[in-house]
Design a binder for these strands. Structure first.
Lengths: 237, 237
DNA sequence: CAGTGGTCTAGACCACACC
DNA sequence: GTGTGGTCTAGACCACTGT
């Protein structure tokens, strides 16, 4: 059962054991070195490495080498914890870089979600967030100017959850969240220090006020190997 | 921006447009045919196909060909809807096959989660669930016999949520759920009609009664292209 | 049986990272 | 400048699907 007949599967299993049993945290030997070790062609080796990558065990830095993945960040979309809160609570060093801020008209998807017409005004920001110096998510946040007057006058590089709470008195909110696997393409892939076509997780969020009026539409593009959705809930049959 | 310099990216974009714009639902031409069409080597073509697969646009049936993915199933771990309920509500035809049922001792992961010692007794079942004839998830369910006496005496090929409700009066439950991307290996991959190493989503669930005592530990291995997590919640700042 | 995807080889050249 | 991964070629043989 544990012995596989194919070369890539054997290499995958050997490397898996080395990584998990030795709890490695550094980098792997070069591809050509591993080819020699296992006596296989480079494309076969890369098939094995690609699966370890999909397992979230290793990742590549562009043209630099393969590295063992750090532990995943746990993220509960139901808790209203800020990025700063839940990363530090798990022992990570978070940081955020604002890439872009602009006013624009909504695309069709956002117009539908926020029940706006195409001429409405949005304040949109794009930012990349890192833990321990590793970029893990690109966020595309879109706020309806109609529901949040003059939001573009504020400094959106600071905490936005604090801004909503203090300036706009949004003390209770409703969330519609979806999570699915996706591919990360340029330029998002570049912001995440990964390659065009890399695996990702896409989190989409519609935020509503206590009346149920949607005022914010977010898209989060996560490295697939950096994120674990976690969630505690009380239910009724 | 939309024109990419690499062959695989160009092929990926052309096929993406054909699939989404023509809203195709059938199969693709054979790999060798596509190689001739785009005048590229087969491994380059397969790089493009692999990315379309990661995007959830196409999938392969073993040695039969490439097919366009059907729409994704939406799944809300917070709603206590049964598989039957939420699949039919979305217009799918669900079916379930019980693969295995046995009594066993807990592994370390389960023992920790259910706060059992290694000699405790579990009733475990393995089943595969399909929508419209396509296998989408393998479920590994584990029930603590101590908390659910004689559960192994019941017919677990029927609705388990009904059994818990009617026989064990579990009207309220607490869930701990996690979702992360993973790789699907044999024999799970085989049950899902996919290949060893295919991309998946793993959903882990600890189920507790109203006192907070854990009595069930589940692992769900989903085809990554069959599932979208959806979730509506009311929060407080 | 013919055709399909699955595995694998042994090269090549390139852009970029790192020193 | 040297070494790295990224892209790409042109084959080969195999296991299996579908007829």
């Amino acid at each position: 059962m544990s012995t596989q007949s194919f070369a890539y599967a054997q290499v995958r299993e050997v490397l898996t054991k080395q990584i998990t049993e030795l709890q490695l945290t550094g980098s792997l030997p070069s591809e050509r070195e591993l080819c020699a070790t296992f006596d296989i062609a480079r494309s076969t080796l890369r098939q094995a490495l690609g699966q370890l990558e999909n397992m979230g065990l290793i990742y590549r830095k562009n043209r630099s080498g393969w590295y063992v993945c750090p532990r995943k960040l746990k993220y509960d979309p139901m808790q209203h914890a800020s990025f700063l809160q839940y990363t530090t609570a798990q022992g990570f060093q978070p940081s955020t870089v604002l890439l872009e801020q602009k006013k624009q008209k909504p695309c069709k998807e956002i117009a539908t979600a926020l029940e706006l017409d195409g001429r409405a005004s949005l304040t949109s920001i794009l930012r990349v967030r890192s833990v321990d110096g590793r970029a893990v998510v690109v966020e595309d946040l879109n706020f309806s100017n109609k529901h949040l007057p003059d939001i573009d006058k504020h400094d959106l590089s600071l905490s936005i959850s604090m801004l909503l709470k203090n300036t706009y008195q949004h003390h209770k909110v409703l969330y519609d969240i979806s999570v699915e696997s996706c591919c990360l393409f340029n330029p998002i892939a570049q912001h995440l220090d990964t390659y065009d076509g890399a695996l990702g997780l896409k989190v989409t969020r519609i935020v509503r006020d206590q009346q149920g009026t949607a005022f914010e539409f977010d898209r989060e593009f996560w490295r697939h190997d950096a994120l674990m959705i976690e969630n505690k809930a009380k239910l009724q049959f």
